[in-house]
Write a protein that binds this DNA or RNA. Sequence first.
DNA 1: GCGATATTTCGATCGTCATCGAAATATTCC
DNA 2: GGAATATTTCGATGACGATCGAAATATCGC
Lengths: 227, 227
Amino acid sequence: MRTVPEPDFASVATVIGDPARASMLAALMGGEALPAGELASRAAVSAATASSHLSRLVSSGLVTRRRSGRHRFYELASADVAEALESLTRLAAMPARAEVEPESRRALTFARTCYDHLAGRLGVVVTRTLLERGLIAGSGYATTPRGEEWMRGVAIDVGHLKAQRRTLSRPCLDWSERRDHLAGAAGAAIASMMLARRWIVRMDGTRAVRLTVRGRDGLYRSLGLEV
Amino acid sequence: MRTVPEPDFASVATVIGDPARASMLAALMGGEALPAGELASRAAVSAATASSHLSRLVSSGLVTRRRSGRHRFYELASADVAEALESLTRLAAMPARAEVEPESRRALTFARTCYDHLAGRLGVVVTRTLLERGLIAGSGYATTPRGEEWMRGVAIDVGHLKAQRRTLSRPCLDWSERRDHLAGAAGAAIASMMLARRWIVRMDGTRAVRLTVRGRDGLYRSLGLEV
DNA sequence: GCGATATTTCGATCGTCATCGAAATATTCC
DNA sequence: GGAATATTTCGATGACGATCGAAATATCGC
């Protein structure tokens, strides 16, 4: 038996691998902090079970806990966690879905947050427009000089984004559309800008976001995109 | 109970999370195909147990099987799998190691492959030199125009690399050095070039590689790097 | 302070799955 | 063909951990 030391990714994977914990992580992928009770119901387990799972998620460093009165809010610990979950999702075989989509899923497939960037049909169509306009390019979705210019035009501090350890822009597989949307620091900045300007607003209780009239207008003015 | 459908990353994580399977995957991160028996001994389990694990790895799409006589060689299915494992490793808490490193580990910490690119002290020092020479830049290790030129100079087809879906260049945390080394399509191409020119050669049975005299010379001539 | 709500701790139960040895199958070498 | 090696299948065992209800703790609203 050899005893070559290896980095221990097994323990992290075990933590993520439990169905209840995975549901909680998926809920937290919306990017918002959620209380324990909400996470319990999302995972369909008792409060007691949820509590034990949550403390494990915290002690393994995947999730952070913040107390606010009698509630305790949980949140993904970092963008690294979101990226790891995303890379696992990419590996997961996408089940073929022929069924009609239920009302509850409608909003989610139209537009939602994927941790800190935009996903769903809206995310995909915005990304396609960025490509068509030459603001991002190539299969790696690299930001072009014209793309940087555009970002500055919508008040995004590109220099600040480039200083981060994070990749500036990259594709992220959209599970409902089965196509890529834009992720990375630029993707996050764009979604953040859209939220700040109230082009999109979060719908409570889910990861879904709603496109406002102002947003429709903003997308048309800044990208020539008609939604 | 809500039944909003979510992508199923739990099942993939479960597969990765078992210690025996994780050991096998870690061994396969070396980038080479290995036979079942070898993987059984790396994971310190019986041949029967290994066989069951391996078929699960194959059916979940993480690993591919190729038969060659009475052997069966296993290999990571794609760079996506390697990237997912890497992102999990980044999340795994690195244990503080104060111990003297045993001989068996020496070669591994000096230079090894991390799936398809170079890691270890050599990987880190080459990466640092690329940064100092301005061939890659920023905390995202983006390839610069001068970097592309340098790659063409060592017979790497940059256009081909850019056409891939993969990120051209990005950092990857080195678990033995606790610093980043270069990964992505460019990192893979450089390691591949070094192997092809026999600047480095694989040491059998491990992920370790050895720097040849020719390699020392090549690194000096192409990068001015004295190892 | 008191009832209501949110969360955690405790203790017990139960199912799943990793594990192995033995036997079966496949392939090579001579 | 027959012995040796590589791998898989089968069946049985055992351990870990996910689960819950009940009780404990903490906070809020009044």
